[in-house]
């Protein structure tokens, strides 16, 4: 069992949890992920590592409440335990030799972009961190972002904070203004990563995306996380989760990601009803 040492609500649908998992904390690197189960009959869900503390032996995850499992997870309190927590899985982000990078995050994906930006920033790389949210109230981790970037650019869909612009527009502005990027790293909704890649392709900037497909074991056994990269089938759990964004078939990834949408909506509703009954 894995103890939740800290829980913080970042916005109404996004929560941060710091979990005691020394075996994961001792080796994990930005870009890698964990798989957890909330309780004994729980589903296995992959979540990217948002931060870690090797000395304390803790790993931080940040999740958005989208389905029954994340709903249940969000009901766990500080001091309570998670059934399973395994990792680190996948390959770490390659940061070697990079001088100037734009790290792009959208929505909850910004939480995953954070450790990558931090690592790059720590090794002296110039980091433009471009993050987008729907509206001001949903902005998370602003202080952390500032500390992990040379230049923090925040945009909102409705203009309630920063520029009213999509992250692609903000990135384009930087490129047009003369920023010379060795690499763009985009982490967020698949649709956002797709459009970032379409943009960077025009400028020929190498672009890495972090894929978060449906997955069960996370160790290269089930093949559920497969996607097409450069015409070849790849497994996000062992070959990724990061891939050359200019080669990923995003449309296929979006379709596959929606495979259990009906189930998820229904299951979440049921879980919510259960929790409501408990409250009564």
């Amino acid at each position: 069992m894995y103890r939740i040492v800290k829980k913080r609500e970042l916005n109404p649908t996004v929560t941060l949890m710091e979990v005691e998992a020394p075996m994961v904390a001792r080796k994990c690197e930005p870009g890698q992920f964990i798989i957890l189960r909330v309780d004994a009959d729980g589903e296995r869900i992959p979540l990217t590592i948002a931060d870690y503390d090797r000395e304390k032996g803790t790993v931080t995850i940040i999740f958005q409440i989208v389905g029954a499992t994340t709903e249940k997870l969000n009901h766990k309190k500080e001091g309570e335990y998670l059934q399973d927590f395994v990792g680190p899985l996948g390959k770490a982000t390659e940061t070697e030799g990079l001088k100037r990078v734009a790290v792009i995050g959208g929505g909850v994906g910004t939480a995953i972009a954070y450790p990558v930006a931090k690592k790059l920033h720590d090794v002296g790389c110039h980091v433009d961190l471009i993050v987008g949210f729907r509206t001001k109230d949903l902005i998370i981790l602003k202080d952390e972002f500032e500390a992990a970037s040379t230049n923090l650019i925040i945009g909102t869909d409705d203009g309630s904070y920063g520029k009213k612009a999509l992250v692609t527009d903000l990135l384009k502005e930087q490129i047009e203004a003369g920023a010379q990027y060795d690499r763009v790293i985009a982490i967020g909704p698949v649709i956002m990563m797709k459009f970032v890649c379409l943009l960077t392709k025009q400028y020929n900037i190498p672009t890495v995306v972090s894929m978060n497909p449906i997955m069960i074991d996370g160790t290269g056994m089930c093949g559920g996380c497969r996607l097409t990269v450069g015409g070849e089938t790849k497994f996000a759990c062992v070959d990724g989760p990061e891939f050359d964004g200019h080669l990923v078939d995003f449309d296929e990834a979006m379709a596959r990601g929606a495979m259990y949408r009906d189930f998820e909506l229904h299951a979440r509703e049921e879980t919510c009803n259960l929790f409501k009954q408990e409250v009564k």
Binding site: E43, R44, I216, M221, E252
Partner: peptide, 28 residues
């Protein structure tokens, strides 16, 4: 890679390990 194509490993893992065949299972 269409929706509805499984590897046998994934299909069987969902059923055997994760008990997706049971009514009310968390794993779809």
């Amino acid at each position: 890679n269409l929706k509805g194509v499984y590897s046998a490993n994934e299909f069987l893992t969902r059923i055997n390990l994760m008990k997706a065949y049971r009514e009310g299972a968390d794993t779809p």
